[in-house]
């Protein structure tokens, strides 16, 4: 008498699981049965989302190979324009010049803030924009002047091809000067490591990359948090773009579609960005 119940139970469980997995993999279904390669490079803020999306796709279908590299927004646009990669990411909108020259298809799939960060041990957690400008111009050189310890300020910045730098420079510094004493790091990840390791540092990083290893600094009273970026209260923000040469085709198109799908947008939100849909 017990046997049929057990079988019914099992059958029900299998059905539920099948439905669940079918439902979950919905947006990934398009990748089933496909074969090939997608090469992605450029903006370093994009990397966590790109890697996770690539992992999900490659787990579902091992016949697809997706490579994700950094290099900065400028490099992403350049490489996709020259056909070296399939998707070139940028943390800024490509300029009209770039878009025209290469005939770029531009897909904005999230909004990201750029937050000022210091080491968590630093007691300075709030600055005015004017103070920040003076710090980056090299006019304020000691944390004491900002209410912190009597220690020199170590400035960190990114190179000119960084989209994060571009947005920070325009919207937080008001195109102000960056001191020649500033130290350069080459990605959002490297910036986070540098700030987390240097107790007297100040830098800027994608809000999506912020975690407990660094402390966000409020600008004019507005903290660089996901909520404040979402509500528009924190103004130092930009779109995250994935660019293709012309209209995307084949797997590249599927990848862009996935970023724009419910699942892709949920992934962007989970990694600390504001989804566009």
């Amino acid at each position: 008498m017990k046997k049929p119940i057990l079988w019914h139970g099992l059958l029900a469980a299998v059905l539920v699981m099948a439905c669940a997995s079918w439902g979950l993999a919905g947006d990934l279904d398009a990748f089933k049965g496909r074969k090939g390669e997608i090469r992605i490079a450029g903006g370093t803020a994009h990397i966590p989302v790109m890697k996770e999306a690539a992992k999900r796709i490659m787990t579902l279908n091992p016949d697809i190979n997706i490579s994700v590299a950094g290099g900065g927004s400028g490099l992403g646009i350049k490489q996709v324009g020259e056909g070296l990669v399939d998707i070139g990411n940028s943390g800024r909108k490509p300029t009209d010049d770039e878009a025209g020259k290469y005939g770029l298809g531009m897909y904005k799939w999230a909004i990201d803030g750029v937050g000022v960060v210091v080491n968590p041990k630093n007691s300075v957690k709030s600055l005015t924009k004017a103070q920040l400008k003076d710090v980056y111009a090299g006019k304020i050189v000691n944390w004491k002047e900002l209410g912190g310890e009597d220690k020199g300020i170590n400035l960190y910045t990114r190179d000119e091809s960084s989209g994060t730098r571009e947005v920070f420079w325009k919207k937080a510094l008001g195109k102000g000067e960056i001191s020649s004493k500033a130290l350069f790091v080459q990605s959002n990840g490297a910036m986070k490591t540098a700030i987390a390791n240097d107790p007297y540092s100040i830098g800027y990083v994608s809000v999506g990359h912020m975690d407990s290893s660094v402390a966000g600094v409020a600008l004019d009273g507005k903290a660089p948090t996901l909520e404040n970026v979402k509500s528009g209260e924190y103004g130092v923000a930009r779109g995250l773009y994935s660019n293709t040469k012309g209209e995307p085709t084949g797997l590249t198109q599927l990848f862009i579609n996935y970023l724009m799908s419910d699942e892709g947008q949920a992934l962007a939100a989970a990694k600390g960005f504001v989804p566009v849909k």
Partner: peptide, 8 residues
């Protein structure tokens, strides 16, 4: 290395 990412 830092500048090679600039516009071609």
């Amino acid at each position: 290395a830092l500048v090679s990412a600039a516009d071609y």
